[in-house]
């Protein structure tokens, strides 16, 4: 597969109001390129939702529904169930892919229950969580996805407390624990990896889950042109490893040739500025490095362990 083989359609039209350089814009465009026909989209309240549908404008060229913030799994479940019933009763002709789109806030935190319920019940849909590690739409507040030490407006880098004090929630483990047929992480900086995984997610026989890293210039305090570079550094430092879990089998899809120190990822970002100035907080950076190394080893072990 090459970029040239990707379809020309833009199911998300230009003219949306996402910030310049927004990782959600790139990622959702790429996600939608994995479809040959428009999916039915259920979107959670978030930057993406707000920026793409200010009445009377919509950027969506697909059927699209946004009821609220925390219910995306349930709404997609309802759409899927309706489709099943309507097709069975001859009132709808063909199956359309159901695509749930929600941010990290809408998935890791407030929407976790509705996602879990829907996964457990086995509804056939593709759920994409776009994580920019915080509640960006409401002004950069911490979420369960916010990495340790990151500044947000509710985990400020204060005189005493240096940003978020907790580690990121390992959402993939929670999702995988539902024994769904397919789950994967993607970064828009690796578009063909993303395409391949989306195809698998679409074809999965049951619920599938994609965790997409979507760098956010505004919330990460980074220049807009660095969005793709940061999506790459996240992978190369193993802060955000790219892997998939297919029927319980782990596979790392991008092993960095040279695993970079986490500092490469942290330093360019304003949200980690307090780790480098006024003086370098080696203690925190080392702790992050140790944590990332541990998680990276863990996932390699899982890959070995689940090999056939």
């Amino acid at each position: 597969m090459a970029l040239k083989s990707l379809p020309l359609h833009e199911y998300l039209s230009s003219g949306h109001r996402l910030c310049a350089g927004c990782g959600e814009g790139v990622t959702i465009r790429q996600i939608l390129k994995s479809f040959d026909e428009p999916p039915i989209i259920c979107n959670a309240t978030s930057c993406l939702e707000v920026s793409t549908t200010p009445f009377p404008y919509t950027s969506w060229r697909t059927p699209w529904i946004h009821p609220a913030f925390e219910c995306t799994g349930a709404v997609a479940a309802g759409v899927e169930a309706a489709q099943k019933a309507l097709i069975r009763k001859g009132r709808k002709k063909k199956w359309d892919v159901v695509l749930a789109l929600a941010g990290d806030g809408g998935t890791y935190d407030i929407g976790l229950q509705s996602l879990s319920g829907a996964l457990e019940r086995g509804h056939k849909f593709v759920y994409v969580c776009y994580t920019n590690d915080a509640y960006m739409n409401t002004g950069i507040q911490r979420s369960g996805a916010t990495p340790r030490a990151a500044w947000t407006t509710t985990s400020p880098a204060g005189k005493v407390i240096p940003g978020k004090t907790e580690w990121q929630k390992d959402l993939m483990k929670i999702v995988v624990a539902h024994d769904i047929p397919y789950a994967a992480t993607v970064s828009p900086s690796y578009p063909m990896d993303l395409q391949r995984k989306m195809k698998k997610a679409i074809q999965a026989d049951g619920p599938s889950f994609i965790l997409a890293l979507t760098p956010c210039p505004r919330g990460w305090r980074t220049p807009p042109y660095l969005t793709i570079e940061l999506g790459r550094l996240a992978v190369q430092t193993c802060m955000f490893p790219l892997y998939e879990v297919e029927n319980g089998q782990y596979k790392i899809t991008m092993k960095p040739k040279r695993k970079l120190p986490v500092e490469y990822y942290l330093r360019p970002q304003g949200r980690f500025r307090h780790l480098f100035t006024p003086k370098t907080r080696h203690d925190i950076i080392n702790a992050i490095q140790a944590y990332v190394d541990k998680k990276w080893q863990e996932i390699q072990k899982l890959e070995q362990l689940t090999q056939q």
Partner: peptide
């Protein structure tokens, strides 16, 4: 909350 959310999705499908 999810029951009604699912109803909303289903009803919006017709």
């Amino acid at each position: 909350h999810s029951a009604l959310s699912a109803c909303i999705g289903a009803s919006a499908m017709g």
